[in-house]
């Protein structure tokens, strides 16, 4: 029942727009109201931009968008040269946490994954 889309691209800021476009399309499919859709679009933009900064130039960034019922889960995965997850005391992190319901960061073998969780703000039959 889960509806999933995977997008993979080179760690280049010119590719951020692709992620934004897919974020908007998947938000629409998850039936998010327009303001929440715009928030998700910004959040994906922010998450991808954040990981690109710390990724090797030739690295691939992978975004997975999964819809289950009224929820949208997005993971953004990229190798990092810093050996750490992004700092959480930054403006960028504040922005991410304000835009979606929850954000977590994990690292394994120098690969960082940001997980964004979004819950639709309106009842299904509204």
């Amino acid at each position: 029942m889960a509806d999933s889309v995977t997008l993979s691209f080179r760690a280049d800021t010119r590719n951020v727009g692709l992620a934004r476009t897919v974020a908007a399309a998947m938000s629409a499919r998850a039936d998010l109201p327009l303001d929440q859709l715009e928030d998700v679009r910004l959040a994906v933009d922010e998450a991808v931009a954040q990981l690109i900064v710390d990724a090797p130039k030739t690295a691939q960034i992978t975004c997975v968008f999964t819809i289950v019922d009224a929820e949208l889960d997005i993971t953004v995965t990229a190798p990092t040269v810093t050996g750490a997850t992004p700092a959480t005391d930054t403006f960028s992190w504040t922005v991410l946490t304000a835009l979606v319901d929850s954000v977590t960061a994990a690292i394994e073998s120098d690969v960082v994954t940001l997980s964004l969780h979004v819950v639709r703000q309106i009842p299904v039959d509204a």
Partner: peptide, 16 residues
């Protein structure tokens, strides 16, 4: 349509 639906629904409309 957004202006109208926002007024009618009391929230932002969905794409659908």
């Amino acid at each position: 349509a957004t202006d109208r639906l926002t007024r009618e629904l009391g929230r932002a409309p969905t794409v659908r």
